[in-house]
Simulated assay, not measured.
Amino acid sequence: MAYVIAQPCVDIKDKACLEECPVDCIYEGPRKLYIQPDECVDCGACEPVCPVEAVFYEDDLPEELSAFRTADREVFDGLGLPGGARGRAPLAADHAVVDAVPAPSTT
């Protein structure tokens, strides 16, 4: 099991969770932050600091946000276990689940 960052993070990316993660398993994408599930140690440090309440323990993820569990897993398919996010460039692309979230209106 792991924690998942869901839809409330899309286009917000507050990054408070990055500072709290003791194993550096939270990676930045263009529109959302992602938790590498195989690097996550389930400590929960990221959850209470998220100001938009986007972080969920995998078993507690609301059904309507379940696609984000898949997104957090699949976005790492080509990367495997990167070994930590610090010092790495942001991911080149978001998962299709994130791309499907409408961008905020600029009007």
Results as ranks from 00 to 15, higher is better:
residue 12 I to P: 00
residue 55 V to T: 12
residue 62 P to C: 06
residue 43 C to M: 10
residue 22 P to L: 00
residue 42 D to V: 15
residue 100 A to E: 12
residue 16 A to D: 12
residue 70 T to M: 11
residue 104 P to N: 01
residue 40 C to L: 07
residue 50 C to V: 11
residue 41 V to S: 10
residue 93 A to D: 12
residue 9 C to I: 07
residue 28 E to N: 03
residue 65 L to H: 05
residue 79 L to S: 11
residue 35 I to Y: 03
residue 34 Y to D: 06
residue 100 A to D: 06
residue 103 A to W: 03
residue 34 Y to S: 04
residue 26 I to M: 02
residue 45 A to Q: 12
residue 92 A to Q: 14
residue 24 D to G: 11
residue 97 V to M: 00
residue 58 E to A: 13
residue 95 H to F: 07
residue 31 R to Y: 07
residue 61 L to S: 04
residue 58 E to G: 07
residue 32 K to D: 02
residue 18 L to A: 03
residue 60 D to S: 12
residue 24 D to Q: 08
residue 94 D to S: 06
residue 60 D to E: 15
residue 40 C to G: 06
residue 56 F to K: 10
residue 47 E to L: 14
residue 29 G to L: 04
residue 28 E to G: 08
residue 64 E to Q: 12
residue 53 E to S: 15
residue 9 C to M: 05
residue 20 E to Y: 08
residue 33 L to G: 05
residue 57 Y to G: 15
residue 103 A to I: 03
residue 55 V to S: 06
residue 18 L to Q: 08
residue 23 V to C: 10
residue 32 K to P: 00
residue 50 C to Y: 04
residue 105 S to F: 07
residue 43 C to L: 10
residue 81 L to P: 15
residue 103 A to M: 09
residue 95 H to Y: 04
residue 39 E to R: 09
residue 27 Y to M: 03
residue 4 V to E: 01
residue 90 P to E: 01
residue 4 V to T: 11
residue 82 P to R: 02
residue 68 F to Y: 10
residue 68 F to D: 01
residue 81 L to S: 15
residue 13 K to P: 00
residue 11 D to K: 05
residue 29 G to H: 04
residue 45 A to H: 14
residue 98 V to H: 00
residue 101 V to Q: 01
residue 74 E to K: 14
residue 51 P to T: 03
residue 71 A to N: 03
residue 63 E to P: 08
residue 11 D to S: 09
residue 18 L to K: 07
residue 10 V to W: 02
residue 102 P to L: 03
residue 64 E to K: 10
residue 33 L to E: 02
residue 21 C to F: 08
residue 106 T to D: 06
residue 68 F to N: 02
residue 72 D to V: 04
residue 46 C to W: 00
residue 53 E to W: 11
residue 74 E to L: 08
residue 83 G to E: 08
